[in-house]
Design a binder for these strands. Structure first.
Lengths: 183, 183
DNA sequence: CGTTGCACTGCAACGAGTTGCATAGTACGG
DNA sequence: CCGTACTATGCAACTCGTTGCAGTGCAACG
């Protein structure tokens, strides 16, 4: 139900086509809310009939036409409404946790391997966030209001990745005796 | 796709009816993988026709009959297969992050309130986990193999909640000037 | 000149998960 | 006796999201 709102935020920052949105979702916002282009097109259609956005076909040369979506007043009102309502509690949903509980009934060695892979991907993600932070927010103590949300979201991502790494380390210490503290 | 496996783990630990499973999912495992009873019944039916579980109707007095499910060899094999395959990377999906990005377009005061509520619920969850840990694993350095998975999952929950609290604190510091460091 | 890749939009079918409802017996408080 | 709550199972309808496919047209590679 939040995809609509993620798109609204994205369009409030800058008008875009479905294709553009899909690519934005691959890059920044998408690290916290994935969406495929099929889904984006579908939702954009619904949002247009709800009056949250309006579209206009823009011919391009050397490229197919694009349909640029612009947020409407109705869309902005919906965003305000969205932020003023309490977020329903989000519960974790971790297939990895299920796997851990399956330890006594499964392939322990494979699980340990999986933890190592997982640790590495957390590290990579963290490095990516740190890089984005350094690039887009070189002065963290002096961020203008309009950019604060982006910074805070990035911070949330970093904290989550760090927690993920710490978890993997605890698991490895228990399961692998911590022989290889690689990197 | 992991609900099947969560149920398999649960049944591997102890046979149960759909109703029992639903209650277990409300308690321990369910903090990491929620499922409603409707969904559990549906999935149990599919799992039975896949040969992963078998059921037997058990009459009770003073209560409706129950259908007790038992894991089969096929189900155990599936569990091994599940643990030996790499877990696909799980991406965060946070409506709350969307809300943060909506800061410049929405109701900032309401968002701050929401952060406070969220912080409190993280704290409550953490307290609950700490309590479970103290009760079920009084000697964390000496946990038998069959219980290790449960402990590690609990630890993951705690780390995630701590990260959530730290995030909320950073947000409040930025948005509310940190006037009230309540509790 | 053929293949690959990118920009751009979409539909159709499916699977996963939620919400609402149906049913039925027992037990307990008012 | 009536309403409520608990144990117990399940169906139907819906939304959300994924997967697979389809088509066009340009540009670059070999």
């Amino acid at each position: 139900m939040a995809l609509e709102h993620a798109i609204l935020v994205s369009l409030a920052e800058r008008s875009a086509s479905g294709y553009d949105l899909a690519r934005r979702f691959d890059a920044s916002i998408g690290h916290f809310w994935k969406a495929s282009h099929q889904q984006i097109y579908k939702v954009l259609g619904r949002m247009e009939s709800d009056g949250w956005v309006e579209s206009q076909v823009v011919p391009q040369d050397g490229r197919p036409d694009k349909k640029v979506y612009v947020i409407t007043d109705g869309g902005r009102a919906e965003l305000v409404l969205f932020t003023s309502k309490a977020t329903p509690p989000e519960h974790l949903r971790s297939e990895f946790a299920v796997k851990l509980r399956a330890l006594p009934f499964g392939d322990a060695a494979a699980i340990v391997d999986d933890v190592r892979v997982r640790r590495r991907s957390h590290e990579q993600q963290l490095a990516y966030y740190a890089d984005s932070a350094a690039r887009f927010y070189p002065h963290p103590d002096d961020i203008p209001d309009h950019a604060l949300g982006g910074w805070l979201v990035l911070r949330g991502g970093m904290l989550a990745e760090q927690a993920g790494i710490a978890w993997c380390d605890e698991i490895l210490q228990r399961l692998a005796g911590d022989e290889d503290d690689e990197r």
